[in-house]
Design a protein around this nucleic acid. Structure first.
Lengths: 126, 126
DNA sequence: CTTGACATTGACATTGGCGTCAAGCCGTAC
DNA sequence: GTACGGCTTGACGCCAATGTCAATGTCAAG
């Protein structure tokens, strides 16, 4: 299939597919016209990438998963590098949540100080 | 005082101060040389901005606080607009935390599936 | 006079994942 | 032949908050 069909089937823009290719996440054969040609495995690959991006992974984070799939595994997370990324991302997410929570506490404290009753009123209203 | 001293005392770069000025967050008198001249109230203002930035506010978020201080209030959050920003930021932070939490759950589920025992082992180790 | 520390403005680089043109080639249908 | 849609590459825009030149001006000390 060509880039338009792959984009359609994977639910991404053609722009994104070319971007992924430029980042080395995707490779495409070319036909006589120079048009990119993809097969079913490329579709799976793009779907893997999208699934990871939607849970907050970066493209770089997704790289080991892509390489794992390319190596012939049926899932991208069948390789130790991918599992390591899972664990690292979990830690990152936890750190972010802690940071956000601290900020929340500080802002809530400021709000309470600036406008006593505001926070309490929130709880009663919502 | 001039820009270098203000930067030093507020703990920011001179580059940042000029940027704040370009964004309309800070105004400076100029002496005969064209050099920016600041007073103590400007220092307070910059400190207010920094305090807000460090809890995750954007410069735009900080604008009502700056205007509140300029209006003669002794704290930046003495005005309703500032309080409104507090409330909005609280809601934003809560939304972010919820999103991160959902992601965390999904990643944890994937990790468990890809490597049963990994998550449990984390709890035992740490 | 020169050096050096400070000041000025302006503009480009960074990070990420694209959207959105722009200009042109390819192929098919009419 | 021409119109249309899909493909190609390339490049700029966006968001935030600076960092980092670059080229030049100012001022006090030696």
């Amino acid at each position: 299939m060509r880039i338009g069909e792959l984009a359609e089937r994977a639910g991404v823009s053609t722009r994104s597919l070319r971007y992924y290719e430029k980042q080395g996440m995707l490779t495409a054969r070319r036909d006589a016209n120079g048009y990119r040609v993809y097969d079913e495995s490329d579709l799976e690959l793009v779907r893997e990438i999208r699934a990871l991006l939607t849970v907050g992974f970066t493209l770089e984070d997704a790289r080991p998963f892509v390489e794992c799939l390319r190596a012939g595994n049926d899932t991208g997370d069948a390789c130790p590098d991918s599992v390591a990324v899972y664990r690292r991302k979990l830690a990152e997410i936890d750190a972010e949540i802690r940071l956000l929570w601290q900020r929340r506490q500080r802002v809530a404290a400021q709000l309470t100080r600036a406008c006593p009753g505001c926070v309490l009123r929130d709880f009663r209203e919502g």
